[in-house]
Nucleic acid binder design. Sequence first.
RNA 1: GUGACUAUCGUCUAAUGGUAAGACAACGGUUUGUGGUACCGUGAACGAGGGUCCGAUUCCCUCUAGUCACC
Length: 412
Amino acid sequence: MKNIMGAWIQKKNIDKRRVGELITRRGSIQTPFFMPIATRGAVKHILPEEVRSLGAEIVLGNTYHLWLRPGSELIARAGDLHRFMDWSGPILTDSGGFQVFSLGARASERFGVNGVRLSEAGVEFVDPENGNRYFLSPEISIDIQLDLGSDIIMVLDECPPYPCTREYALASLQRTTRWAARAFEHFYKKIKEGGEKYVNDRPLLFCIVQGSIYEDLRVESVKQLSGIEFSALGGPDSGWDGYAIGGVAVGEPRETLPDILKWTVPYLPEDKPRYLMGLGRPEELVNAVNAGMDMFDCVIPTREGRHGRLFIMKSQNTNFKSQNPNKTKNTKAQNENNNEEEGSFYETINIQNERFKEDFTPVDPLCDCLLCTRYTRAYLRHLFSVGEPLAGRLASLHNLRFYMRLMEKLRD
RNA sequence: GUGACUAUCGUCUAAUGGUAAGACAACGGUUUGUGGUACCGUGAACGAGGGUCCGAUUCCCUCUAGUCACC
């Protein structure tokens, strides 16, 4: 808690896999870890103490959503996001960059206006909910996240869509670097202004690597971000507290993720946590951990749970060393990267399928969650069929527990 | 009891003398820095019997069922 400077403490390495501890002002978190998403100040359907008991030590909140509703000043008046939502552990807040990118199209569509206007100063965008215009800049994003009381603050980045030309990707990552430098300077200015409040108790600040699907641009992005003259901007020489890889899972082919990690990870500092934003499926998490990543978040367990898709662990003692020479017909890329394959250690079911109508067994007999220890597949299917809210809740609990168990195995 | 009207997927509605379209439901799929969203696909019907006609879900008759009105 005190020693913020060494934010990540390594415990052991297994090949490239890193097991350690991330220190934040609200406690330490075992890495690698997965963050349940509490976009609007709640993990949908789940109480904070339940989130904690599932094994989560940190949740993710969204700057964009909370800024618009109920407003970051309101949350500041409530104390902070922790008190507002009754979560006492660490919180990571997204910067809003991705939402501007992903929700801009919806606003454009709904109000017939240009939903996003990018400039060097920042981004002007339209709230798809009501058509209101807002302006977000690297500095404003920092202010909002400080108001929220975030423990891990993300810089505002420009998240380019896929496909994206090399030229655009280059210009975009350069802007992301300039925005990151501005955010860094502003962050440490505010920390100093905060005086007492932040002495030995400041949030962590992460940058975001871009570069789309271009190897040299990914490398360039890391070099630019780590090459910023931090002390000249009023911050510590140690620079960023962590590095995130962004601009993935935005529509690019799935096979490019291993490449992006292969290109990027070697250039990331060993002593800083690495966060893969927005991912992913279980096998993607396993492969990313094996490639040296530490932090993850994804809507999959909760959103797919709400839609009736359940994750089931196939084997209790899964070996994630990812040796798989004899697996059937791997693609060349999978063999080269020595990767886990989809479905190799787990499977998914759609509980709404008719075949579960009279299936009186647990969803996953090896799972220790509320759903699996107390209810049957037939019951859960029934709840979904008639639209009972308990359905989404039980499924979310189970899927989150699956993800937590997966991370536990990866830390072992 | 008498008269009128109606009868098409599970439900609600179209069209048509040359075997039928859509919506919802059902069934299956998609969902990666969350809109509890959205999208894609698949099955599924002319109440019963008779008549006219080359051919009837369509026109006619009877039956059955329902709705309404009257007694």
